[in-house]
Design a protein around this nucleic acid. Sequence first.
DNA 1: TGGCAAATGTGAGGATTACTCACATTTGCA
DNA 2: TGCAAATGTGAGTAATCCTCACATTTGCCA
Lengths: 213, 213
Amino acid sequence: MEGSAVSDSQDGQIASPRRAPSQQRSRERVERMLAAASALIAEQGSDAMRMGEVAERAGVSIGSLYQFFPDKRAIIWALAERYTAESQACIAAALAEVNDAEGLRQAFSELVDIYYRLFLAEPVMRDIWSGTQADKALRELELADSRANAEFLTAVLKRLRPSADPEALETTAFLIWQMGEAAMRLAISVDRQEGDRLVAAYKRMALRELLGA
Amino acid sequence: MEGSAVSDSQDGQIASPRRAPSQQRSRERVERMLAAASALIAEQGSDAMRMGEVAERAGVSIGSLYQFFPDKRAIIWALAERYTAESQACIAAALAEVNDAEGLRQAFSELVDIYYRLFLAEPVMRDIWSGTQADKALRELELADSRANAEFLTAVLKRLRPSADPEALETTAFLIWQMGEAAMRLAISVDRQEGDRLVAAYKRMALRELLGA
DNA sequence: TGGCAAATGTGAGGATTACTCACATTTGCA
DNA sequence: TGCAAATGTGAGTAATCCTCACATTTGCCA
């Protein structure tokens, strides 16, 4: 029982694949399952997504689905993980080279715009991040992701303001990041015009905090 | 069929009592149902709350429960509505008399503290606001509540800065309010010390925005 | 190449739970 | 007192997640 590759989701813990697909065939099938889940979430939201429907659309049996995903949340979690990994790389790249205030202003402004467009365009991401508050495992993932992203920001701030209290900078960066996600969620849930204004206001506030020591 | 007091919850719409309790007896029973639900949510969270358990603990049958609440969400919604009504009155009172910058600073600071303590102390409120993102009806309620609260803040800002663009003030107030709720949710999901720092940082940022024109 | 263990595939059925409904009881009122 | 409306009941229905005993396929080695 030890040494098994199995890792079930329990309580609020992370739900990784029940069994890692080792053969080419199963890897392809798992991809089909994820694609089906993604499509269904885009159409109706993750809450309305039925496991039977995912299996049917992926052209596999319900048993196969559960061979690789211990439960429904695990599928959503797997999709969320992909998004976070992608966006984290993007964020790291955008902030890595920033060395002055003007650079930070530009990079941050661009990041906010990218995120906003992503939220507007990606129903799956939107849905998953919405459910983030209710699901413990997803919330952990989002918090971890947010901390990681905030760290890139902290690194920039430490470069720009070496004399400031590092802990305070960390708190500020983390808060700004989380508030950004809150602002985005808010922005996409009101009409487009108000959403744009809200994002612009957030950007202004965040930059004031980041730049105006 | 017209003129009935029935108002079922549909899709993402508001779920009000299926039938308004008109007799003393039923009013007391509805109170017991709400109390039972509240206790169960405090113990295990609204997701784990079972309708059968609510009925049992309230000492009524499952049928009686559904006589007054069209579905599970309606009970949660009813509890949420009480909280929002209470806190809105409190906020309105705190902001009504504010007429200068120093008054705003004090009133806002106090409000943030009150809210933070409330979030820390009230597991039910915490749980309900967490689920707010996933449930359409709850989200509507929270948005409406947030807009109402933001309006009190907007009124103050208009008094303090009569020459500013009113629409911009509204956007700012709404955003600050929503970010506050995000900051609170974040603060209670990390350890207490970091939570305190996050709330303090939020307060500082919000006040800078509110006061420093 | 044959054979075998491990990996993968299957879907009927178990278990849980929100919710319904046909019928019983209680209440307010003329 | 009688009766209609309000209220109360809980076994039963439906929907859905997930399991499990068994079938099939694959990789691998003698």
